[in-house]
């Protein structure tokens, strides 16, 4: 399997979260090909909403930064892991910033799916995904439910499925490996 991990940790120093993701990547690499991106150390610009990737250079974002290598690794993966410590009750702005750029992976045309309008596929295959978070002091079940639901919606638009949402506080690396590879 090709597995792409997007780590949205924004800590300046080595964090427990990134150490967990490193252990996860190491374990996954025993049997799979893993692309791990620490987004905070990359030059990822905001999506400018120019739509050039839809109507000028279809499928290709014209912003000159590191996002292209991430987009290539995502769309050619069998599975993607969105990883982020929770910040203000949601995934980090780093991870959100990168996810906004996924618009280049979709087609602007709209189609009806399950009675709703959604963007059509650009690529034949979109990878299913998992979400790994670490909690803040005040994180509760409602926060996790909101994030799970938003990722389910993202899955509909991304032509893929959220397979799990886990918190590092109560999920062993081996459990995540199992659910990533054997779902």
């Amino acid at each position: 399997m090709n597995i792409t991990i997007l780590n949205g940790d924004m800590s300046d120093t080595a964090s427990d979260f990134s150490a967990y993701i490193q252990r996860l990547a190491k374990k996954l690499r025993e049997k799979h090909r893993v692309n791990l991106f620490l987004l905070n150390q990359m030059n990822i610009q905001h999506c400018s909403g120019c739509w050039n990737c839809w109507w000028k250079t279809p499928g290709e974002c014209q912003t000159n930064d590191d996002a292209e290598q991430v987009l290539r690794a995502v769309i050619n993966a069998d599975f993607v892991i969105f990883a982020s410590p929770l910040m203000a009750g949601f995934i980090s702005s780093r991870l959100k910033r990168m996810t906004d750029r996924f618009v280049a992976l979709l087609h602007p045309y709209i189609e009806m799916r399950n009675g709703e309008s959604h963007h059509m596929k650009r690529y034949a295959h979109y990878p299913d995904f998992g979400v790994i978070l670490s909690k803040e002091a005040d994180t509760d079940e409602e926060d996790l439910e909101i994030i799970r639901d938003i990722y389910d919606r993202f899955g509909i638009n991304f032509h893929a499925q959220q397979k799990y949402l886990k918190c590092i506080e109560n999920s062993k690396v081996e459990e995540v490996v199992h659910e990533t590879c054997d779902y």
């Binding site: 780093r94 959100k96 910033r97 906004d100 993202f154």
Partner: peptide, 19 residues
């Protein structure tokens, strides 16, 4: 504007600041 099913990254950045 709604970006990939939630707020744009720059709005999330702002939410982190005000928190």
């Amino acid at each position: 504007p709604l970006y990939t099913d939630s707020m744009p990254g720059m709005v999330k950045e702002f939410f982190e600041e005000i928190s």
